[in-house]
Amino acid sequence: MSATSSQMQAPRTESRPGAPSPRAQRVSRRRLPSWLSEQRLIGVGAVVLALVVWEVAALLRLKPKLTLPGPFDVIDAFKSLFEAGDIWVDLWTSAQELLIGLGLAVVIGLPLGLLIGWYKRAAWALNPFINFLYATPRIALTPLLIIWLGIGSSSKIAIVFLMAFFPVIINTAQGVQSLEQGAVRVARCFGASDLQLFRTVALPGTVPFVASGIRLAVGQALIGVFVAELSGAQHGVGLMMSTAGQQFQTATVFAGLFIFAAAGIGLTSLLRRVENHFAAWRPSHD
């Protein structure tokens, strides 16, 4: 057992100064839990492998370069995008649409979610609309919103908002509804008013639900940005991708794809951090 684990340990401790004595290894393991580094190692390894396979497939020219560029072609596409400079306008436009739409979804969806989670009658009144819009592919409202709001930013923001709003409101309402009744009873027992109950039990108890709702909303919002820009826009990463696609600049399409992915991953991990901060009390995060 210890022999195999020290063998596994060897490649990582080699770079450390001095001979890796068993004691030193134990210390290094304590500082960096082995599962973490093993997880990282496997993850990074798999990504590198995928990139290599992709590059090899591209080099073999199974498909013409026009349809399947390799990773290095994509890097070149990134270079030329940033050298030309137009990308900044696109990035700025898309980021604005994304963040404003998402922000509005949270600012409006969170209180509404709390409201319908807390007051049955509010839920009865609003549920028909929520169910209707939730069941409809909201992206199908794009033509309508463009007619109403034009092809500028406001129609895009509206679409992003519509996409992101529902995960936020539904998760928040569910969070309030699934509050632990025991905690509610304790508060009631001490004579808590509705407002106090809301502030001290409902709000903190809902945080994990809200956080995962917002994380889901990020994914939906990114879909919103992309599709909204496809159906008529002046600037934006989605538009840039569609234009590049029409001109068979496949590497540029890939570059746009990675921009979207990076935005998604960045926002999601940022939110995860916020979530962990607010949920410090949960034992699993210790």
Partner: peptide, 15 residues
């Protein structure tokens, strides 16, 4: 609050 209850489940607020 003049009658405080001790429940079977501790029901502590985890946060």
């Amino acid at each position: 609050p003049d009658r405080a209850m001790v429940f079977q489940q501790a029901n502590l607020l985890p946060w």
